[in-house]
Design a binder for these strands. Structure first.
Lengths: 193, 193
DNA sequence: CCTTATCTTGAATGTATATTCAAGATAAGG
DNA sequence: CCTTATCTTGAATATACATTCAAGATAAGG
């Protein structure tokens, strides 16, 4: 028997970047073979088809994001300083100009919504998981007295999620650091008051 | 000589809806011939190519939106009640479930950003025009004392634009009216107070 | 070292797509 | 009513794309 030679995580991260840059429809299999340095046969053997590659890339993306998120929002630390750092990191990403500046989940849901149920559901599940993770942090912030309890953790998480969708979309047309920081600041104060 | 038989506005609105539903890449010329009830030759004669149809559809979309906007934000009326009505109409759109629920400009910029400069610029120009129109209204609201002058009209317009991008994106995965209305309400209060 | 299961390679296939074009149809001007 | 410019029709073309597959390569087990 023979074992696969390629590094699955590397391949998926390369595919991920291609999908973020070009979108699902416009990322051709040829492009995927280029960025992964794998031939069609290997890709099809490993992931079934283009959709399989995409779904696997989504999982990889979410795993990476999750790791970043849990590292930042450590359960021992106060929430609000982490939130500020988080907003800063997103703005840095938006300004950087590389493919990572868009969120794969947000970009994809906008593209495939109503076209492919399986992909939509995978994206929704991940987006909901993300919002729930935020809600847990906001609940903790309320319990610890960092935020007034006029709104629930879920409500705050929903509002921030919406705000981040908007911030990332806004950054597509305006990459002025000052404007983006002001928006993030307004968003922060709409939450913490 | 002979005059064109089709109604240009009708054709563009049909194309517009197709693009909103399927996105630019996934809207095939075949689909466009179906929804417009025009044959390829006529479409190519009238608009040059698929990109030409798309650019014309964008203009039509913006013209329609502009008319709706100026009807709502009449220069004689106070701004805030109009803003509330405007938010309500967007939520109604989001919940309705038809293709109009997405904003053609926002959906398209997310799809084609970095792929086609001409389309990107057309979209950006329209998005900027929209934001400027909002800024004018907010300036008026500040002058009339409806909103405290702690932030400029431009800043408020930018924030609302971001919020609406986010709201529409959020509605893709969660069409719960209560949640969306709460988000719109939070957004409103983040602006007016 | 040989067998065998599995992986890799990349050319071949079939389908979908944007676009073209020549023939037919139709209205305006004389 | 005839001419002519322009529109309409829809089949044809060329290209791009996702996917398949058979031949070659390679590692593990005996």
């Amino acid at each position: 028997m023979r074992v696969a030679e390629f590094d699955r995580e590397y391949v998926l991260r390369q595919a991920m970047l291609a999908f973020m840059q070009c979108g699902y429809a416009k990322t051709s299999m040829q492009k995927l073979t280029q960025v992964t340095a794998l031939h069609p046969g290997s890709l099809y053997a490993a992931f079934g088809n283009k959709k399989g590659i995409f779904l696997a890339a989504i999982e990889q993306y979410q795993a990476d994001r999750n790791q970043q998120f849990t590292a930042l929002f450590c359960d021992q630390m106060p929430v609000l300083p982490s939130l500020r750092l988080y907003l800063d990191s997103i703005i840095a990403e938006c300004i950087s100009g590389d493919a990572m500046k868009v969120c794969l989940l947000t970009k994809s849901i906008s593209e495939v919504e109503g076209q492919d149920l399986q992909i939509s559901q995978a994206l929704m599940a991940n987006l909901n998981a993300y919002e729930n993770a935020l809600a847990i942090q906001f609940k903790r912030a309320i319990e610890q007295g960092e935020i007034a309890n006029t709104r629930t953790g879920e409500q705050l998480a929903r509002f921030l999620t919406m705000g981040l969708y908007g911030l990332r979309t806004y950054a597509l047309t305006n990459r002025c650091e000052h404007d983006l920081q002001q928006l993030a600041n307004d968003l922060y104060h709409a939450i913490c008051n």
